[in-house]
Amino acid sequence: MAISNITEIVDFILLGFPELPNLQGFLFWLFLFIYLCILIGNGLIIVITKVDPSLQTPMYFFLGNFSFLEICYTTVTIPRMLTDLWTQNKHISFLDCVVQLCLFLILGGTECFILAVMAYDRYVAICKPLNYPLIMNHKVCVQLVVGSWIGAVPIQVGLTYQIFTLSFCSSNELNYVFCDAPPLVKLACGDSTLNEFPVFANAVLFGMIPFTLILVSYIRIIITILKLPSATGRQKAFSTCSSHLIVVGLFYGTGISTYLLPKSKQTVLLEKILSLFYSTVTPMFNPMIYSLRNKDVIAALKKLLCK
């Protein structure tokens, strides 16, 4: 469909995985399984961080909020993907695409901030343990979480507006599984570098800056841990940080690869796979990473299941 002006757009077509025409049913059940794992795993984390007295600390307060964020983040995309796979109706209205992209960007930005806040919490706990209760009091924790949730809203709404005011002149077919910024910008007329710059700048602001803060926090943490006289103390300190580092690596690794690396037509399938990693696969693994590597979480889960 040739499109010459933004006002003429009625809908977009999410092509999904046209490379796998015989696996649409398998993909439906696969993504349904992933979504159920996300809901159950993150839901359990939310419950135990609320009801277990031993988990009433800032670290688990942030973890509970992070799990709730993961449920919201995946609910923006996966139910729509499941509907498209089940019905094979790949059309998404212009308004639905706007809403999906806006929510996806806002929640993605919030996740970047929450991960940075969690790194700061670990930094204070390990590098300034005597002042930890004073610095990370409940009021500060709530302010950090609220700031993370609302801090991304104005800029991401502005980026969504900027993307959808572009003129789309080549096609309304998105070779993607949901409405995301990179494939939408590819459809726009004019200088592709100019069109892609706001998306790139947004990725730097919400991706690289929080990621840099996380790296700085963990460099300070590692330096402090290495100075501990006890090998047991060093091992315990490393174990409390390793889960968060794995989650950060998975999320930022795939996100940066999608938003910041040079684009080419030969990497369309790779881009889709990477987008699925940071939008669906990583949220599924997060509860497993935090529970399997955390004795307190395992103990709380056992108590909950016994009850």
Rank of each mutant, 00 (worst) to 15 (best):
L215M: 12
L215G: 10
L215D: 00
V216D: 05
V216K: 09
V216C: 13
V216S: 09
V216T: 11
S217P: 00
Y218R: 09
Y218T: 06
Y218I: 09
Y218E: 02
I219C: 12
R220C: 14
R220K: 14
R220A: 15
R220P: 00
R220T: 02
I221L: 03
I221V: 15
I221S: 03
I221C: 08
I222E: 02
I222T: 05
I222V: 10
I223R: 08
I223G: 00
I223L: 10
I223Y: 10
I223K: 13
T224R: 14
I225S: 06
I225N: 10
L226S: 12
L226K: 12
L226Q: 07
L226N: 11
L226W: 06
L226G: 13
K227C: 07
K227F: 00
L228K: 09
P229R: 11
P229S: 13
S230I: 03
S230M: 00
S230G: 04
S230D: 10
S230N: 02
S230A: 10
A231T: 04
A231C: 08
A231Y: 05
T232Q: 04
T232N: 14
T232W: 07
T232S: 09
T232H: 07
G233Q: 04
R234V: 00
R234P: 01
R234K: 15
R234M: 05
Q235F: 10
Q235P: 00
Q235D: 11
Q235V: 02
Q235M: 08
K236L: 10
K236T: 14
K236P: 01
K236Y: 01
A237I: 01
A237V: 02
A237G: 01
A237H: 03
A237Y: 06
A237E: 00
F238T: 07
F238V: 11
F238W: 15
S239C: 05
S239N: 12
S239T: 14
S239R: 11
T240A: 05
T240H: 05
T240V: 14
T240K: 11
C241L: 06
S242N: 03
S242A: 04
S243P: 05
S243K: 06
H244D: 11
H244L: 14
H244Y: 14
H244G: 12
L245A: 13
L245V: 11
L245C: 12
L245R: 06
I246C: 10
I246D: 02
V247Y: 11
V247T: 14
V247C: 13
V247P: 04
V248G: 07
V248I: 14
V248P: 04
V248E: 12
